[in-house]
């Protein structure tokens, strides 16, 4: 307990400086809101449901996007990784599409899909898909040949070996692809909500900035941080649960 407090001592110092500086008006409220106002805003917003609603919407979008990206990424990774023929044709396309800074596709998705939920999901999928797909593919390429041979010796067919050997072998790769995808997805979601949305934490933060409600803006930032943390830990837990043999 004490160890934990000691570890976070710099945060306590910084928070105290923040609170003292703003409370005694050494720092103007147009620069930083009082820290207690941030927490008050957080408390109020969660209590009356406003912040809770925005958080839920954002979380739904990210999780939905990640789930779809995961299904598509694993499917494409398996397809390219298992088929020699398609590998040569598909990989250059997929790697080539990587060269575009995918954030630049955001306007295109707005033109094509409008500002609705489909566009949000597609934006998130477009960034989360690639790390998951490439990791699935890499994982397949690195399946230990001796495991395949051992299974062949036991009398398993190629189809059975996919389930017995290859799928378990690529699980850790999928999980680490997912871990890379999480912060990218959250970032894209925030911007998608900033440039065109009627709800979500990204929209809340940018509106609060435009109306100089800095306490509310910081409340949104805190919630986004918590969301990022929660998602990362969730993927970590998913990894422990699906791959218990990895330590």
């Amino acid at each position: 307990m004490l160890d934990g407090v000691l570890y976070f001592y710099p945060l306590i110092i910084l928070a105290s400086l923040w609170e003292i500086g703003t409370a005694f008006e050494l720092i103007g409220e147009d620069v930083l809101p009082r820290l207690d106002f941030v927490f008050a805003s957080l408390w109020r917003g969660l209590g009356d449901g406003e912040l809770l609603w925005h958080t839920a919407v954002s979380l739904f979008r990210v999780v939905g996007g990640l789930v779809i990206a995961c299904l598509l990424g694993v499917a494409f990774g398996l397809w390219t990784g298992l088929s020699k023929r398609w590998d040569a044709y598909l990989m250059p396309l997929l790697v080539g599409s990587q060269a575009f800074p995918r954030s630049a596709l955001l306007p295109l998705f707005i033109v094509w899909l409008g500002l609705g939920e489909t566009q949000k999901l597609v934006v998130i999928v477009s960034v989360a898909f690639f790390p998951i797909m490439i990791n699935t593919y890499e994982g397949l390429k690195r399946v230990n040949e001796s495991h395949v041979w051992a299974a062949l010796s036991m009398g398993y067919s190629n189809r059975e070996i996919l389930r017995l050997v290859k799928i378990p072998a690529i699980l850790p790769y999928i999980i680490s692809g997912l871990r890379i995808a999480v912060p990218m997805s959250v970032t894209m979601m925030v911007v998608a909500e900033m440039v065109g949305a009627y709800s979500g934490l990204g929209q809340l933060v940018i509106i609060a900035g435009q109306t100089y409600e800095l306490a509310k803006m910081f409340a949104g930032i805190v919630l986004l941080g918590l969301m990022g943390l929660l998602l990362d830990r969730a993927v970590e837990a998913l990894g422990r649960w699906t791959t218990p043999w990895n330590r």
Binding site: S146, W149, A150, L152, L171
Partner: peptide, 20 residues
């Protein structure tokens, strides 16, 4: 012709399936 369960093989390392 190909692998069969009449011949069993053990490798130098990581012969077991690590996920089982």
């Amino acid at each position: 012709r190909g692998p069969g369960s009449d011949r069993g093989i053990v490798f130098q390392r990581e012969a077991l399936f690590p996920w089982m």
